[in-house]
Nucleic acid binder design. Structure first.
Lengths: 163, 163
DNA sequence: GTGCCCATGTAATCTGTTACATGATTAG
DNA sequence: CTAATCATGTAACAGATTACATGGGCAC
């Protein structure tokens, strides 16, 4: 199961029956934009999940567009549990564009480096304010917001020590 | 420029002239395993960089294997600077398998959830001990280690609040 | 009835993964 | 000499991205 497939099952599990389009919207507006929510990723991923009988689709009446209400099957919930409990994968570092760049910033000319660090601090503080201003009603989003705030603080702390 | 291409330029910039094989080793033993360092990724990426004249290859004498010493060109350094100063990309959240799973952990049966959280704490503390035990001689690795330690602490703090 | 969003998908392309292939060098 | 490692690459494949295509529902 790919990360995207696991994430989709999680959305269906937390959000109840919804259409593939609605799943896309969740990714499109998500705080952690790990995926673009592009149709070319979401629809094939859902098709794979359906083929593997991990997701079931119930046709909605009075919709000529063939909109389906998707729900995880019992096997889908079990597979998702396994994915959730995969300690090795869950504990992995993931990919972080900040961490990838940070080791090389010392190679920049000093003036450029100072400008960059100032711009990064400004951007991170802007993000932090935006997150803080947002309501965290949905339980899943609240967790992501909390972890994202911690990430922002980590980066800000590190940046301010580099000034 | 892809993240991998940027990272490769960074390795060449920080590590001095080295072969494509040596670049691979850096990724293979790297603390932040964002990439596997697979030959099928590294060699094509370096080929792209060479084609774009961002990396130059000097043949080493007395090596029948055609080993080349790779160095960033002036254009390569400029492109790398741009990549380093891309505030939007650097400030992005990246992808985090922990953050992807965390919102769904509340859906697990309570007993399973407690077991998982305990296993995750153990794994993170093991990782933290391993990082602490490692020497951080190389400047680039030291930065990554520092950011990884902060990431581990964030996750541990969050997990311990969930117990 | 004309736009605009809803809703589903496909096609071309890019990049990374695993696995394989090939040959040079060096340690025992 | 033989085995392990150094060193470079390719092939088949999987998954994500952008862009495109198609058509239903609804507001004005």
């Amino acid at each position: 199961m790919t990360e995207l497939e696991g994430a989709i099952l999680g959305v269906l599990r937390r959000g109840g029956a919804m259409s593939a389009y609605a799943v896309r919207q969740v990714f499109l507006v998500s705080q952690s934009d790990e995926w673009s929510g592009s149709a070319g990723a979401v629809y094939p991923a859902i098709a794979r999940l359906q083929k593997a009988k991990l997701v079931a689709a119930a046709a909605q009446k009075a919709d000529g567009r063939g909109t389906k209400a998707l729900t995880p099957t019992r096997a889908g919930l079990a597979a998702h549990d396994d994915w959730l409990c995969d300690v090795v994968r869950a504990a992995g570092p993931g990919s972080d564009p900040f961490r990838t760049r940070a080791p090389s910033w010392s190679k920049l000319p000093a003036a450029q480096r100072r400008t960059l660090i100032a711009a990064l601090i400004e951007e991170m503080e802007r993000q932090r304010a935006a997150v803080r201003a947002n309501p965290l009603d949905d339980s899943g989003d609240a967790v992501i917001q909390e972890l994202n705030l911690a990430l922002l603080d980590t980066r800000l702390n590190w940046l301010k020590r580099q000034r």
